[in-house]
Amino acid sequence: MIDDPKTHRDTPLARQIKESIRRDGPMTVQSYMARCLWDDPHGYYRRQRVFGATGDFITAAEISQIFGELIGIWAGVVWRNVFGAPGAVTFAEYGPGRGTMMRDALRAARVVPGFSEAVRPYLIEASPTLAGLQSETLADFRGKITWGSKLDEFAPPAIIVANEFLDSWPVAQWIKTGDGWRIRGVSLDPAGELQFDTLDGDCPHEAFDALLPDAPPGAVVETQRLDRLATALQSLMQRGPVVMLLIDYGHTIAAAGDTLQAVRAHQYESPLASPGEADLTVHVNFYDLASTLHRAGLALDGPVMQSEFLGAVGIVERTSRLMAANPQRAGEIETSVARLLAPSGMGSRFKVLAARSPDLPPLPGFRAAVPANGSSGQT
C-alpha cells in the first residue's frame, strides 16, 4: 500500500513516536512495530476489543466453531496416540485472543475418552486486558485454566497450539538500494510526518546477495527473531515430550517482499497511518520458521495448506454433522467453513506446521515430515 501522509492520524502514540524520533533519531521498522503493538499504555494490544466483528480483525476460530473443535479433537488424539494417554497433559495456547479457540477445543475434546480429566489448559497471554476477556469466554472451564506470560513456564508433556500468533511478532526489514542493502526504518519527513526511510547500521549484505542475487532496488527482506520460540521449545523438551501446532498466513519459499500491513476496523491502511490504533501484522516466513525449529532439534510435519490440514482432520464430516443437527443454520455453517477452505483465500494463504520432540512419531493431519532444508515446495 502506498503511504500518503494526508491519511495519517495524530494518535497519542503517533505524537510520542514523533517526539522520540526528534530526540533520539529514526527507529527501525522492528522497533516501530513493537511500540505500535505493545507500548504501555497506547499500544494496540493494550486496548480492549481488537477481535471479532466489533474489533479490527476476525480469526478462523471466530469464523466457525468447527475450527476450534477440530483443534481440540486433534489435541485429544495426540494425547492418546502420540503421548500414550498420560494422566496429565498441558494444553497450552500462545496468543489465545478472546479464548474462542480454546473454548471450542475443550468442549469438543470431551469426545476423546479420558482427555478432559487429564488436560491442564494453559494460556500464554501478555495483555491483562485480553486475559480478562479470555476469562469471560472460558467461564465454563475457568477453574482448570492457568495463565502465564512466558513461552516455557508450564510442565510437559505439552501440546501447544498457536493460531495467528507469529504474524504479530515484529520484523526487521532490509531494503535494496543503489548502494546495496540497508536497514529500513521510520523517520520524519520535512513536514514532521512519519515516513519510511533507510538507516545506517550493520546489515548482512553477503547473506542477502546470496539469497536474492537478482533483487532489484526497492526489494525488501524481512527477518523475525524466531530463535526465541526455538529456545522456549528446547527448554520444554528438556523436561518432557512436546508437540506444537502453528497456524498462520505466510509463505514457504524464501523471497523478497514487504508484507507489513495495518488493519483498522476491518479496513487496510498504511502501517504509518494510526500508530497504536491499528493492528500491524506480517506474513510468516515458514521457510525460516521450519529451518529454525529444525536446527533446534525438533522434528517437523508440514507445512501444509490450512485447507489440506483441516480436510485431513475431518472438517467435511464435522460440517455435515453440524449442519444436520442445525438445519436452520445450515447455510451459515456452510458459508463459514467455505471461508476457511477457500483455495484463493484462507485455505491456501494460511499454512500449518507442526513441531515435536524428535523421539515422537509423526502427527495426525500431515502426509510427511518436512525436508531438512525446511521447505515443502508449496507456496
Score class of each variant (00 low, 15 high):
Ser291Gly: 14
Leu300Trp: 09
Asp248Cys: 01
Gly331Asn: 06
Pro275Thr: 09
Glu334Lys: 15
Leu289Asp: 04
Tyr249Asp: 06
Ser270Asn: 06
Leu236Thr: 01
Arg228Tyr: 04
Ala232Gln: 00
Arg225Asn: 14
Gln238Glu: 15
Val337His: 08
Ala296Leu: 04
Val304Gly: 03
Pro271Gln: 04
Pro303Met: 05
Leu298Val: 06
Leu229Gln: 01
Leu300Tyr: 10
Ala299Ser: 15
Leu229Ala: 02
Arg318Thr: 13
Pro303Ser: 09
Leu280Cys: 12
Phe309Asp: 07
Ala342Cys: 10
Phe286Tyr: 10
Ile247Ala: 13
Gln306Ser: 02
Thr259Met: 10
Arg321Gln: 12
Ile247Cys: 15
Leu293Met: 08
Tyr287Met: 06
Val316Ser: 15
Arg264Met: 13
Tyr287Gln: 11
Ser235Asp: 15
Leu245Val: 08
Val242His: 07
Ala256Ser: 14
Phe286Lys: 01
Leu293Tyr: 01
Val304His: 02
Arg295Asp: 13
Asn285Cys: 13
Ser320Gln: 14
Ala232Tyr: 00
His266Pro: 08
Arg339Gly: 01
Pro275Lys: 07
Arg264Tyr: 07
Val304Asp: 02
Tyr287Gly: 10
Arg349Gln: 11
Ala312Tyr: 04
Arg225Thr: 13
Leu341Lys: 05
Ile247Val: 15
Arg329Trp: 12
Gly347Ser: 08
Tyr268Met: 13
Arg329Gln: 15
Thr292Tyr: 06
Ser307Glu: 14
Ser336Tyr: 07
Ala342Phe: 02
Gly250Ser: 02
Leu310Phe: 05
Arg321Ala: 14
Leu226Thr: 10
Leu322Met: 14
His294Phe: 05
Val337Glu: 04
Ala262Asn: 08
Gly331Cys: 01
Ala324Lys: 12
Met323Tyr: 00
Ser291Asn: 08
Val316Ile: 14
Leu236Ala: 03
Ala325Ile: 04
Ser274Met: 10
Asp248Arg: 03
Gly311Gln: 05
Leu245His: 03
Glu308Lys: 09
Leu280Asp: 11
Pro275Tyr: 11
Ser344Asn: 15
His283Ile: 00
Leu229His: 02
Ala296Met: 06
Arg318Ser: 13
Arg228Glu: 15
Gln234Ile: 11
Ala278Arg: 06
Thr259Ala: 09
Met346Pro: 04
Glu277Ile: 03
Ser320Val: 11
Ile253Asn: 00
Ala254Pro: 11
Ser270Lys: 05
Val243Glu: 00
Ala342His: 15
Leu298Thr: 06
Val304Met: 02
Arg339Ser: 13
Ala254Glu: 09
Gly297Ala: 01
Thr231Asp: 15
Leu260Lys: 06
Thr292Leu: 08
Ala330Gly: 04
Ala232Leu: 00
Leu300Arg: 04
Gly345Cys: 02
Glu269Ser: 13
Glu332Thr: 12
Leu280His: 11
Val304Leu: 01
Val316Pro: 00
Gln328Cys: 01
Asp279Phe: 09
Glu277Lys: 14
Ala330Val: 00
Pro271Trp: 08
Val242Lys: 08
Leu298Lys: 05
Val282Leu: 10
Arg264Gly: 10
Ala278His: 05
Arg225Leu: 11
Lys351Tyr: 06
Leu226Ser: 09
Glu332Gly: 01
Leu310Arg: 03
Asp258Ser: 10
Phe350Tyr: 11
Ser307Trp: 10
Leu246Tyr: 03
His266Cys: 09
Ala265Gln: 12
Ala254Tyr: 00
